[in-house]
């Protein structure tokens, strides 16, 4: 493992790292459209593409925090528009269930965002990334979970 990149310290202060789990059909395509339209947004997000938000295991989110994410974003098709008919409903239901659990394990819910971005909503995607980045920047680095990884016994 190469280890995660250092936080980019700039003159403006710290730059948060955000991990986004997005579905292949709506949000990934929406993010592509933002590119094709040459829009500009904050560079802090790293996307992991999955077939559907229904594929997202809550452990992915915890792992992302553990590996240095200051914020996590989950985004998929709008309710009713899922490529797989009902995958996003599963994601939403799971989200409701795990929200409390996430809070219980000490994750500040302001660092976790859930959204629906369709393949045509490039502007929504841009606004989402900008807003989430700004909000997480205000919260500062998320040290609680990063510390966990270092403290864990070596495998």
């Amino acid at each position: 493992m190469s280890g995660h990149a250092e936080h980019k310290e700039t003159q403006g202060g710290y730059e948060p790292k955000i991990m986004a789990f997005v579905c292949n059909w709506c949000t990934y395509a929406g993010a592509d459209l933002a590119g094709t339209s040459r829009m500009e947004y904050r560079p802090n997000v790293r996307i992991i593409k999955l077939p559907c938000t229904g594929r997202i295991d809550p452990l992915f989110i915890i792992k992302a925090f553990e590996n240095g994410a200051d914020g996590v974003l989950v985004s998929g098709c709008h309710p009713g528009d899922c490529h797989y008919t009902t995958g996003n409903y599963h994601a939403r239901r799971r989200w409701i269930g795990f929200k409390n659990l996430m809070e219980f394990v000490g994750i500040d819910m302001r660092r976790l965002h859930f959204s629906w971005v369709s393949a045509s909503e490039a502007i929504k995607w841009v606004d989402l990334i900008n807003n989430v980045t700004d909000e997480i920047k205000k919260l500062g680095p998320f040290m609680d979970y990063k510390g966990l990884k270092e403290a864990a016994p070596a495998e």
């Binding site: 990149a5 993010a31 592509d32 933002a34 590119g35 094709t36 040459r38 500009e40 996307i47």
Partner: peptide, 17 residues
């Protein structure tokens, strides 16, 4: 689409990272 076209930093530092 998800990097060079949406981050217009001409120093190329942001895009490269």
């Amino acid at each position: 689409e998800q990097c060079s076209w949406v981050h217009h930093d001409k120093t190329r530092a942001v895009g490269t990272l």
